[in-house]
Computed example of a mutant assay.
Amino acid sequence: MLIVEDEFLIRMDTRASLEAAGFDVLEAGHADEAIAILSARSDIRLIFTDVNMPGSMDGLKLAHFVRERWPPIKIVATSGRARIPASDLPEGAHFVPKPYSAAEITATFHELVQG
């Protein structure tokens, strides 16, 4: 799993929660770093990306890029600033609003990975 979140403390806390739930977690601070990781590895099955991020693309653009380039990867987007309608997400992607609980995201990710 790859967490893409520009806020360091949120990224750290989310990673710790997901690792405690048994997930292997990598992290990226922006889309370009995420794409570099995805390009170098073939074992990532899910990305969890914040929508509002600095850099060459935001989380929505990243989600669409990932869907086009790596179709099997599951995508979950999050934001505390806006509710993203399903029509703005790539096909099959999910949205979880911030603030989210560790139990909420863990259950969502287990369902996606196992389903």
Rank of each mutant, 00 (worst) to 15 (best):
L2S: 07
I3Y: 04
E5M: 06
D6P: 05
E7G: 02
F8W: 04
L9V: 05
I10V: 15
R11K: 10
R11F: 00
D13K: 06
D13E: 13
D13H: 07
D13W: 00
D13S: 15
A16I: 10
S17W: 15
S17F: 13
L18V: 02
A20W: 02
A20Y: 01
A21L: 08
A21K: 10
G22K: 10
V25H: 11
V25D: 08
L26R: 13
L26P: 03
E27G: 15
A28Q: 09
A28C: 07
G29N: 08
G29M: 06
A31I: 11
D32H: 05
E33N: 07
I35W: 04
I35V: 15
A36C: 02
I37T: 14
S39C: 09
D43H: 07
D43G: 13
I44T: 09
I44D: 07
R45K: 14
R45N: 11
L46T: 08
L46I: 12
L46R: 03
I47Y: 01
F48S: 12
F48T: 08
F48A: 13
T49V: 13
T49Y: 04
T49Q: 02
T49R: 04
D50K: 09
D50M: 11
D50P: 01
V51F: 12
V51G: 12
M53D: 07
P54R: 10
P54A: 15
S56D: 12
S56H: 09
S56E: 12
D58A: 08
L60A: 10
L60Q: 05
L60Y: 12
L60S: 11
K61E: 15
L62E: 07
H64F: 06
F65M: 08
V66Y: 03
R67H: 14
E68I: 03
W70S: 06
P71N: 00
I73N: 05
I73C: 08
K74R: 15
I75Y: 02
A77T: 15
A77G: 07
S79M: 06
S79I: 03
A82W: 07
A82M: 09
R83D: 14
R83H: 12
S87E: 15
D88F: 01
G92E: 03
H94I: 04
F95P: 04
F95D: 02
V96R: 05
P97N: 13
K98A: 05
K98V: 02
Y100M: 14
E104P: 00
I105E: 04
I105W: 05
A107R: 13
A107F: 00
T108K: 10
T108I: 03
F109T: 02
E111G: 03
Q114C: 00
Q114W: 01
Q114D: 09
G115L: 00
G115R: 04
G115Q: 01
